[in-house]
């Protein structure tokens, strides 16, 4: 039985309401690309999400449709998800600040103390 729909486009498509279709196989939805958008010149590109696409050219097009919609964007990058390496959240202690690196802390340099002491010695 074909569908008689309120939507004339659906009626015109002559769709059999009981037609069964085979399952989508792996990769039917192609591979994924990660999308990076730059909101304005002078700022960093930021990761905004992923798209399914057959190649980088179409990934850029889908990326524009998906992530640069009515927002501000001046530039897009895409990269295959499979080409991206990432750290593990489980290992996030590698980013912790360590107290033995005080030599990198601007606060650890106390020149004013030294200058003050020097000036006091001069007065005497």
């Amino acid at each position: 039985m074909t569908i008689k729909s309120l939507d004339p486009r659906v009626t015109r498509a002559n769709i059999d309401i009981e037609a069964k279709i085979g399952h989508q196989e792996n990769l039917d939805q192609l591979q994924t690309y990660e999308v990076f958008a730059q909101a304005k010149r002078g700022t960093h590109h930021m990761h905004v999400g992923s798209v399914h696409a057959p190649n980088s050219e179409l990934a850029l097009m889908f990326g524009k449709e998906q992530y640069a919609r009515r927002g501000t964007c001046v530039n897009l990058w895409v990269a295959k998800t499979s080409d991206i390496s990432a750290t593990e959240y489980a290992d996030d202690d590698i980013f912790e600040l360590t107290s033995d690196k005080f030599h990198r802390d601007p606060e650890s340099y106390k020149v004013m103390d030294r200058i003050k002491a020097y000036k006091e010695r001069q007065v005497k």
Partner: peptide, 26 residues
């Protein structure tokens, strides 16, 4: 179902040979 089925050959035609699916990052 109609939309999935009618688009299937297009997706198959543009699928690159070395395509590989990995879980999207985020």
């Amino acid at each position: 179902r109609m939309a999935e089925e009618k688009g299937r050959w297009v997706r198959r035609a543009i699928l690159s040979k070395d395509a590989q699916y990995v879980t999207p990052l985020s």
